[in-house]
Design a protein around this nucleic acid. Structure first.
Length: 471
DNA sequence: CGACGGGACGC
DNA sequence: CGACGGGACGC
C-alpha cells in the first residue's frame, strides 16, 4: 500500500462513522457562519464549503465534521429545515455518505436508527428494552431466535425513533453488547404483493380507501395448476425441506450428521440441546431441496440406529412458500431421480457416501481409562469465567458434546470452544478449583482414542480491531 | 435539486 | 507443538 497515507486521510474524514454532515445551503453561507450555527451541538473538527475550482464561488453545499456521530445526528435533527440566512431556502442536513463508499443516495434515518447488539441468551425482549431505553425512546426491540425452538440466539435489534438516540446508545452502552448500527433489512418486501396483506408495522392508519387494492390483486397471482403435476400435490401436505429427528438413545451430533448426510443436499444439521448443553434427543436437519428431504424422511423414519432404537423423522414447517411451479418441478425432478437410484445398492452411485453403520453403535459415548466423576450441572451460560483451559488434541479434535460430557464432571463448566480448523480448544469454568481438578485428571489422558494436553490458557488477547464499527 | 480541498507518516 | 474474538431479522 504505497498510497497508505492518502487513503488513511480519506478514511479519517468519517472516523468515527456517521460523524460528518452534508449540508445543502445558500451559496452565501460561509464557513464561519456554519461553525457558529452548528457548534452548539458538539465538537466541530472541521467545516468546509465546497467551491468551484475556477470561480471560487460556493456551490451551496458544505461539510461539517463532528467528533462524534451522536453530535452530528443531533445537529442534523435540529438544523434540518432551518432558515440560516434570511430570505434564503431552508437548509437540508444529512449524514454525509462515507467517503469510501460509492453511493449517491442520501443516508436515510432508516439506516441510522436501528442498532444490532449481542446480549445474554437469557435476555427477554423486555430485558433488552430496559437495558437500552436509557439512551432514547425505543420504537421496538426484537431478539433473534431459533425459528423452531424459540431459543434466543443472543442477538437483538433495537429501533430508536431518532438517529442521535441510536448513536448515543452505540457510543455509551456497555462494550460487551458490541452495539453497532444494524444493516438495513433486505428489501424483499415487494410493495406490489397485496396477497399477504399489509406488513405489520406499515399501516398508514385505518384508511379504507386502501382496501380497493387488496381484493382485485389476488386473481392476478400466478396460481399453479395442480393438474400439471400428477405425482403429488405438495402444497396440500406438510412436506418441507426441514426435518426433525427424535431419538431416545443418546446420539452425537456427528452420528446424526453422518446419517442424514447420506442423502445428498443436506445443508444444516444440529442436535438440539437444553440450556445445560445436554441433548434433548432432537435434531433439526435441513436439505437444499424438497426432494432430498422427502427422501430422507421416507428412508430414515423408523430406521433403527443404534440397533434397537427406532428413529422418528418428521417434517418441520420451514415457513417457505412451496407453491411456485419452478420449486415443485425442481423438487419432483430430484425426488424422482433419487427414488430411482438404489438405496441399498453397493456403490452404484457416486453421490452416495457409504453408510456409517460399519462401526458398532457406542452404548456409552465416552471411552477412556480415566475414572471420571459423575456428570455435574453446567454453570449458567453467562457466568463469569474464573479459569480457562487450553486443550491440544492428537491426532484429531474431539466432538464438542463429548468434551462437554467429560469436562462437565468436575463442576462449574461454562462452555467448550473449539477453534475451527485447528486441533485445539478452550474450556471455560466458573470456578478455579473445578478447572484445576479437570486439568489434573485429564492432562495427557486419552478419550475415545484422542490424546489431550490440558493446560491453563493464556489470557485472552486484547481488544481486536478486526470488526469495522459502523457508528 | 445538492457530493468531496489542502496538506503530506517516519524507520 | 498449538491460541481465541464472535454478528443478522423474515414484517
Amino acid at each position: 500500500m504505497e498510497d497508505y497515507t492518502a487513503k488513511q486521510a480519506i478514511e479519517n474524514l468519517d472516523d468515527p462513522p456517521n460523524s460528518r454532515l452534508f449540508v445543502v445551503t445558500s451559496r452565501a453561507m460561509t464557513e464561519d457562519a456554519l461553525r457558529d450555527s452548528f457548534s452548539v451541538f458538539g465538537d466541530i473538527q472541521g467545516v468546509w464549503v465546497v467551491k468551484d475550482k475556477q470561480t471560487k464561488e460556493s456551490k451551496g453545499v458544505c461539510y461539517v465534521k463532528f467528533a462524534k456521530s451522536s453530535q452530528a445526528c443531533l445537529a442534523m435533527e435540529e438544523m434540518h429545515g432551518k432558515v440560516l440566512v434570511e430570505g434564503t431556502k431552508p437548509v437540508k442536513v444529512f449524514i454525509a455518505q462515507s467517503r469510501s463508499s460509492n453511493r449517491h443516495r442520501d443516508v436515510e434515518d432508516e439506516e441510522l436508527t436501528r442498532i444490532f447488539v449481542m446480549i445474554p441468551k437469557t435476555f427477554t425482549e423486555d430485558d433488552l428494552k430496559d437495558t437500552f431505553k436509557e439512551y432514547g425512546d425505543i420504537e421496538y426491540c426484537v431478539i433473534i431466535k431459533n425459528k423452531f425452538t424459540g431459543e434466543s440466539k443472543g442477538l437483538g435489534y433495537v429501533r430508536y425513533y431518532k438517529p442521535s438516540q441510536a448513536a448515543v446508545a452505540i457510543e455509551n452502552c456497555d462494550k460487551t453488547y458490541r452495539a453497532i448500527l444494524a444493516e438495513p433489512r433486505t428489501k424483499n418486501t415487494v410493495t406490489e404483493d397485496y396477497s399477504s396483506g399489509p406488513a405489520r408495522g406499515d399501516y398508514m392508519g385505518g384508511n379504507d380507501s386502501n382496501n380497493q387494492y387488496a381484493l382485485p390483486a389476488l386473481p392476478a397471482l400466478p396460481m399453479a395448476d395442480p393438474g400439471n403435476y400428477p405425482v403429488m400435490d405438495y402444497r396440500s401436505t406438510d412436506y418441507t425441506r426441514c426435518l426433525m429427528m427424535s431419538t431416545r438413545a443418546a446420539m452425537t451430533q456427528e452420528q446424526i450428521f453422518a446419517l442424514f448426510d447420506i442423502i445428498p443436499g443436506m445443508e444444516y444439521c444440529e442436535l438440539q440441546r437444553d440450556s445445560y448443553g445436554m441433548s434433548k434427543g432432537h435434531a433439526l436437519i435441513r436439505y437444499g431441496n424438497l426432494g432430498s428431504a422427502v427422501y430422507a424422511k421416507d428412508k430414515l423414519n423408523g430406521f433403527e440406529y443404534p440397533p434397537g432404537n427406532r428413529l422418528v423423522v418428521t417434517f418441520v414447517d420451514d415457513g417457505e412458500d412451496r407453491s411456485s411451479p419452478v420449486g415443485r418441478m425442481a423438487m419432483q425432478f430430484v425426488a424422482t431421480q433419487m427414488m430411482s437410484s438404489a438405496w441399498n445398492g453397493p456403490s452404484n452411485s457416486q453421490v452416495m457416501k457409504p453408510p456409517p453403520f460399519a462401526a458398532p453403535a457406542p452404548m456409552s459415548r465416552v471411552q477412556t481409562d480415566v475414572s471420571l466423576p459423575p456428570h455435574k450441572k453446567l454453570a449458567a451460560p453467562d457466568s463469569k469465567s474464573k479459569e480457562r483451559l487450553f486443550i491440544v488434541f492428537s491426532p484429531t479434535t474431539l466432538p464438542p458434546d463429548i468434551l462437554e460430557d467429560v469436562f462437565c464432571r468436575f463442576g462449574s463448566l461454562i462452555e467448550v470452544h473449539l477453534v475451527p480448523g485447528r486441533k485445539v480448544g478452550y474450556i471455560k469454568y466458573a470456578d478455579k478449583q473445578c478447572a484445576d481438578d479437570a486439568m489434573a485428571a485429564l492432562h495427557g489422558r486419552v478419550v475415545n482414542g484422542v490424546k489431550m494436553k490440558v493446560m491453563l490458557a493464556d489470557p485472552p488477547r486484547e481488544e481486536s480491531h478486526k470488526r469495522p464499527r459502523t457508528y
